[in-house]
Amino acid sequence: MVLAKVIGSVWATKKEEALSGSKLLITRVFEPDTSKELDIIVACDYIGAGIGDIVIITSGSGARNAQGDKDMLPIDAVIVGIVDQVDLNK
Rank of each mutant, 00 (worst) to 15 (best):
10 V>E: 00
11 W>A: 00
15 K>S: 14
15 K>M: 08
15 K>Q: 15
15 K>Y: 04
15 K>F: 07
18 A>M: 11
19 L>I: 14
20 S>Y: 15
21 G>Y: 15
21 G>N: 13
21 G>T: 12
22 S>C: 14
22 S>G: 11
24 L>S: 11
24 L>W: 12
25 L>S: 12
26 I>P: 03
29 V>N: 10
29 V>E: 10
30 F>K: 15
31 E>C: 05
31 E>D: 15
31 E>R: 11
32 P>L: 13
33 D>W: 05
39 D>P: 00
40 I>D: 07
40 I>F: 10
40 I>E: 12
42 V>Y: 05
42 V>D: 01
42 V>N: 06
43 A>F: 01
45 D>P: 01
47 I>K: 04
48 G>D: 07
51 I>F: 06
55 V>N: 05
58 T>R: 11
61 S>V: 12
62 G>R: 02
63 A>V: 02
63 A>G: 03
66 A>E: 01
66 A>Q: 03
67 Q>I: 01
69 D>Q: 12
70 K>A: 09
72 M>Q: 15
72 M>C: 08
74 P>W: 00
75 I>T: 10
79 I>G: 06
79 I>M: 01
79 I>S: 05
79 I>T: 08
80 V>E: 03
80 V>R: 04
83 V>G: 00
84 D>A: 10
84 D>E: 06
85 Q>E: 14
87 D>W: 06
88 L>K: 06
